[in-house]
Design a protein around this nucleic acid. Structure first.
Lengths: 244, 244
DNA sequence: CGAGTAGTTGATTGTATTCAAAAATAGTGG
DNA sequence: CCACTATTTTTGAATACAATCAACTACTCG
């Protein structure tokens, strides 16, 4: 073991490619500009032209879109190790906003440095393409949930997915996990009203499946919840490096 | 002009990177295995481990997920020039299915050849990452639509987006476009029942906004429709090559 | 011409939303 | 430590939107 642990981001990419010394060096060079952001203050705003992306080191962020009528749809959450704003850089303007849910720590990556890194190390580009695909798979699953699951199954599925993601980085288990989200976050994520979120949570609690309270999600009947949500974690699984 | 036109795929990538002769050669090598598929016969099935991706040359395809209870959610449509199954290759199993809507023509790309191509030409990897980002932006917009737009706005937005995409490849205009989809496709795309799709289409028709009939979408009041859908095509725009 | 597919409509049921307001909780400054 | 404010959570009642059930029409294909 080295004295300094790899960043969660590098740990995540390593699940897909075995990174060489020189690739690690290129990655390390991307990791210079450490930044912090306060909870609630948007890091990137929808419509803004984006020259920088971020790699999240600590804390939770959500990415969302605001509609002209003011309705908000949260698209995804980022937890440590997740990339943030890659799409904004490639498409040159951000089609969505990023809001830190809590105070966070992130590494700033300039568009130019990122494209340079891709040019130097194609395997790194492939690895990041893999990570982007995994994120897209989550968005797709989210889409399916909103389109074709009822409110209860949707909520159950969301909590299970979040639990699985956090378990991968050691921040949760089948017992539960700490969760800084409010019921408004859940509503804007699941396409429900905050009031209805509250009712659905009560039902899940009354059926002794899961409790969401005081910043903590506690699974009481994990298997029952999996059954209700028809949760199949296949799309999250990492089956070992594809690129040796 | 050359005797043979570039494939729509190459035309699309060129919007992002200026491709060199050697990069075009690598792309050409990917374009060998031409295949055809009959309408309705799934090309790739959910859960199947995937070693091949496709580049669509002609026809329409939809990608969808089936839920354990039988409900179907269409995630996206592919039109000529679109990549198909990239995610399946990188994640090694397909989390969704592909169904040709009409008889189609596609180029088969082996996982191995694709990863090789990335290793040889990092700019190509970046270009494909760009295309994937653009696709993801559409999925995200779709998610927002299902989560936060009512049935009418959802339908209007979908038809406008499809029109814009087709206009980019010369297959539609602000007058309308030919469309082989059934109302069942629309229902499974928008998260509605087929019956409700029918009602919504009738309302749009009665308000003289748009007609969907006989395999043809006709815009009668394009601006009115844009207003109803709050359609902002920014996420589809291509503002010229980022990589020179 | 019958069978099948796609589209159309009405009536009814149910789910989720909205509006309104009270109760619990967290944070702040005196 | 307590009063005060702002969030967040909880509940009730009325309403709106979309689903389901059940026919019925139009069109295509063998």
């Amino acid at each position: 073991m080295t004295g300094e642990a790899h960043s969660p981001f590098i740990r995540k990419l390593s699940a897909f490619v075995v990174l060489s010394e020189s690739e690690l060096a290129v990655l390390a060079r991307l990791h210079r500009r450490r930044r912090t952001f306060a909870a609630g203050q948007d890091m990137v705003h929808q419509g803004q032209s984006a020259q920088t992306a971020y790699i999240l080191s600590a804390g939770w962020v959500c990415s969302y879109k605001i509609q002209p009528d003011g309705a908000r749809q949260i698209v995804d959450f980022q937890v440590p190790g997740d990339f943030l704003g890659l799409r904004s850089v490639l498409l040159r303007t951000s089609d969505h906003s990023f809001e830190p849910i809590v105070d966070i720590e992130a590494v700033e990556v300039l568009a130019h440095d990122l494209l340079d890194a891709f040019a130097q190390t194609p395997r790194l580009a492939t690895a990041i393409l893999w990570a982007a695909s995994r994120d897209e798979a989550m968005v797709v699953e989210h889409l399916v949930g909103i389109g074709r699951r009822d409110a209860g199954a949707r909520m159950a599925h969301f909590l299970l997915e979040l639990g699985s993601r956090l378990a991968l980085v050691g921040m949760g288990s089948k017992k539960g996990f700490d969760c800084p989200l409010t019921q408004y976050h859940l509503a804007d994520t699941l396409g429900l009203s905050a009031v209805h979120v509250n009712r659905v949570l009560r039902q899940l609690r009354e059926h002794a499946l899961v409790t969401f309270r005081n910043g903590r999600v506690s699974f009481h009947d994990y298997e029952g919840l999996v059954k209700l949500a028809e949760f199949d974690p296949a799309y999250l699984d990492q089956a070992g490096p594809l690129l040796k």
